[in-house]
Design a protein around this nucleic acid. Sequence first.
RNA 1: GGAGAAAUGGCAGAGUGGUCGAUUGCGGCAGUCUUGAAAACUGUUGAAGGUAACACUUCCGGGGGUUCGAAUCCCUCUUUCUCCGCCA
Length: 424
Amino acid sequence: FMLQLTYIREKKDEAIARLAIKNFDAKPILDQVLELDNDRRKTQNELDALLNEANLLAKQVGDLYKQGKKAEGDDLKNKSVALKESSSKLAEKLKSIEEEQQKLLVQVPNTPSIKVPKGKTPEDNENVFQEGEIPKLYSGAKPHWELTTQYDLIDFELGVKLTGAGFPVYKGKAARLQRALINFFLDRATAAGYLEVQPPIMVNETSAYGTGQLPDKEGQMYHVTGDSLYLIPTAEVPITNIYRDVIVKPEQLPIKCCGYTPCFRREAGSYGKDVRGLNRLHQFDKVEIVQIAHPDKSYDTLEEMRNYVGGLLKELELPYRTLKLCGGDMSFGSALTYDFETYSAAQQKWLEVSSVSNFETFQANRLKLRFKGSDGKTQLAHTLNGSALALPRIVASLLENNQTAEGIKIPKVLVPYTGFDIIK
RNA sequence: GGAGAAAUGGCAGAGUGGUCGAUUGCGGCAGUCUUGAAAACUGUUGAAGGUAACACUUCCGGGGGUUCGAAUCCCUCUUUCUCCGCCA
């Protein structure tokens, strides 16, 4: 998760102006980065010159020994030893400069797209689309955490016994509904051209670093300390890391992958109503879509993904709205993000069910995910991802919005997957 | 888990201390020939830093060491293969 040095070097003012949209004052840190960069290049030049000299000397020493000129060879050898000392000192200096520079760089968020609205709080997000009627519920309507008990669907208490809060147990028709949603989402994604992958749900440190979970968000992941592995917070991590250190062929773009995985999040610091019922869990299921796109096409790709996710919600007959996030509400790595929210009728509030983002080169830079351009030069690709979709809040919305005096109705499109059309 | 072997460019596979960033083959790209294609022939073909462009530097699984000099020797970690054990 990093900006490119050449970009900072060439367009510092633009970077500062754009980062201001995210309410990030970049000038001091970028100035420092560039200062270190000058230092770095200067040091590297000096080091290169020394190493060059040492390499030439080594060759001469070899030649002299071959010719039997031992005394002259020994003489040069001593000179070379002295060179080595100063070069190793310089190499150390270079390393520490690079480390310092890296430490600063990873603190700088991605520059938002110029399309991103200014703002600081969720209230400043721009509602760009809304679909469906907000349903009027009958007088006995309940929030989903009461429905799940009433219909014996989800046992939160049992999850506490087995594991802890935020690890619910789905039973009977609820378990079947989970499976139905996963299959429905995967079927739609593969039909839309996404390659289904089933990745590991634990990743190593390098992968967690590659998509930016480390070093900053370490506390948000479950860490398996014995083997130094992390439980994935989203399938984005393993799926995107498939392309770490890969140079793809330009004709392969766009690359489209999807995958279902459970997701694990510690959600430290959450409390109260926000975590009630299915609103926020430590373990939940999600189908993720990921695309790797040519830089010229990535915003078209983002719109395509946005339409795709909206289509899913429409098929599920859920009222939803699409928000273009303002600078202050965007994530660290995103250049442009659309959030999808479904309306939870019984809770009378919008629930975020998907977030679709273009990371431009920010992730690719860390991942070293590149392609060979038409000019023959390798350059960074753009990465995008989105949930399509996360299950718990979809389930919450389905239960609440579709409750009737007779029972909870299942949307038509899911019936072939569930095998029932109503929960009684 | 125990014993042994190995890790080199997109792939295969040479290279065991000195002009080796690396022979060669395949693949890719460009050209010759051809109406076009194939075949054949010729050339070209890794990445990163650096430069206006060169130069130059670094990279032979990762890390460390020996040496004037390491793909090559030593240590260590990881991974893969073979055999044995265990197991959904």
